[in-house]
Design a protein around this nucleic acid. Sequence first.
DNA 1: GAATGCAATCGTAACGTTACGATTCAAAAA
DNA 2: TTTTTGAATCGTAACGTTACGATTGCATTC
Lengths: 332, 332
Amino acid sequence: MANLKQLAAELSLSVTTVSRALKDGPEVHPSTIARVKDAAKRVGYLPNHHGYALKTGRTLTITAVYPMETQDHLSDLLKLPLIEGMTLAARQAGYSLSIYSTTPDDDPVESVQRQLQARSTDGLIITRMVSGDPRVKLLLDAGMPFVTFGRTNLDTPYPYVDVDNEQIAYEATRRLADSGCRRIALQLLVPEDQASAMRLSGYQRALAEAGIPIDQSLIGHGMFTMESSAAWFDRLLGSPDPPTGLACANELGLLGALHVLGKRGLAPGKDVHIVTRDSTRLARFLPAKIGVHSVDMAGVGRTLVEVLERRIANPLGPVETILFKGEFEPGE
Amino acid sequence: MANLKQLAAELSLSVTTVSRALKDGPEVHPSTIARVKDAAKRVGYLPNHHGYALKTGRTLTITAVYPMETQDHLSDLLKLPLIEGMTLAARQAGYSLSIYSTTPDDDPVESVQRQLQARSTDGLIITRMVSGDPRVKLLLDAGMPFVTFGRTNLDTPYPYVDVDNEQIAYEATRRLADSGCRRIALQLLVPEDQASAMRLSGYQRALAEAGIPIDQSLIGHGMFTMESSAAWFDRLLGSPDPPTGLACANELGLLGALHVLGKRGLAPGKDVHIVTRDSTRLARFLPAKIGVHSVDMAGVGRTLVEVLERRIANPLGPVETILFKGEFEPGE
DNA sequence: GAATGCAATCGTAACGTTACGATTCAAAAA
DNA sequence: TTTTTGAATCGTAACGTTACGATTGCATTC
């Protein structure tokens, strides 16, 4: 309701002094500071974001570029704790969090360029990293603070927070092999993504160790939805040499697979061994024996914001790179 | 990178003319408009949000106040499609969507007041309506455009988008009664919420019609998590006169209940009939016979933004109130 | 040929904030 | 007394935008 000018008039002070008093400027008398702060609280003064932003160039907003797979289907559930972690941390740090959704039709590079040009954000969180991701160079060149969720292969250092997908997929595959599975199916999301590439790599490493040859037909791509997962797994189970182990991409992939098993009268944990990624603790509640790799996605979201925040405060500071490990819990 | 002044200098025009040209002002020559737009595109001019906001008072941002139940547990999954619907619609309408998370510690009224004072948003989406919600009056008095997700009992009209919880709970209870259940348990979320009140009302109406007396011990509150749902349902099943029907609050409540059934060796759809709300189509993929009421939450999110958008454009226009029906699918 | 009208363009102020360089005034130093 | 110091406060410009009221110049009218 009130602005600095009105506040200054009420106190018979200059705008400058009031402005300085509110941020404890050393050049203004302590008693004046107290008087100003009192009045500010009384009239409910809050600084105008846009005046501030225009003058200082700091927008007090960070933007998360949020990729959606499809328009109609449910997204990967890990995004919910991720968003919640981000929003809470952002609020705590005094930032607004703006979510910029992109559909598969959007060019990811162009989305970032638009954010850069609009200059209406102090920092960017980008996800869905691809090999040699051009967005990193773009952001580095523009001097825009950012963090990525996921990594890419570049020689220049940049801040990221990632989940150790290689390790998780390795362990998952390893567990299945240890359970006696020789034909192990693997679900992947966006194949060109770094995350999927890492999972594939961990899968291959575990298979190599177990002396199991790789069968491309057991590797499924684009498992975004329960439907696609179910269709793929059904096809696989109907093949001459069906899998006896399955590493699911996430909760949705798992549910799709369980759906098919139920229809075919097969028992998870007996006919087919299953291990899944699960960021929602949902799989653990299913009445079936399923190995679960969980990652603290709310923590990832929080960390993304915190790293970005430090990056904004000190753009030339150390480049933080943080890796979240998965925690494994065998099925009950 | 460029601003109006630079653009004007490059074109040897005044800032005024350039500004007008960019918004097709009738007073500037068509050929000039073309020339200006050309140059703008060439140098990648994008208007500065904060200059614009400061001058016009329009921030081009809308804010969704997003209530979280707990810090550690997974939130109601319906929030994911809700958020996605909102972000997409906001972007389409040329608005940024800012998410303002609140924890149970936050006073909801104060959260709204803060948004009002900060004046950094063009409109507000609030949820979790309670009886006689004071926020509505607050926002009406302040003249801040808003939409609520959910309703409250007030004599002044205000725009809302809601789900017909009464009808859904009525139908769910009705189905269970039709299946022969006489003891029907009901899960509720926030008891003081209007949404829960409506569900309770629908539940009571169906029971009254079926001639079944109401047993308060069958009504569970605070079923936010799979854990609380499981604990509650387990206690219920261990009681002398256990329920034979269950209406779940959402997917998480369902999974908690299924977990308990599995542990006790009971079969859903046989020993206990189950109907649930499901906004993620997740329940339909579970290998169990479960009746499902689904609501298009992405549509709700989209609609919230669209109504708000119209409200902002025309604050004195008709007050829109929209009710989403649930769609029922019996278990396979 | 002067006056009128109209289309096109321009200059300036203002939104609320911060930052820089004054300016004031009393107390300490000369 | 005069000068210097320093603390406290003030005035003004600027960030990028829009909106209002000029101003220009050319064709039309009397």
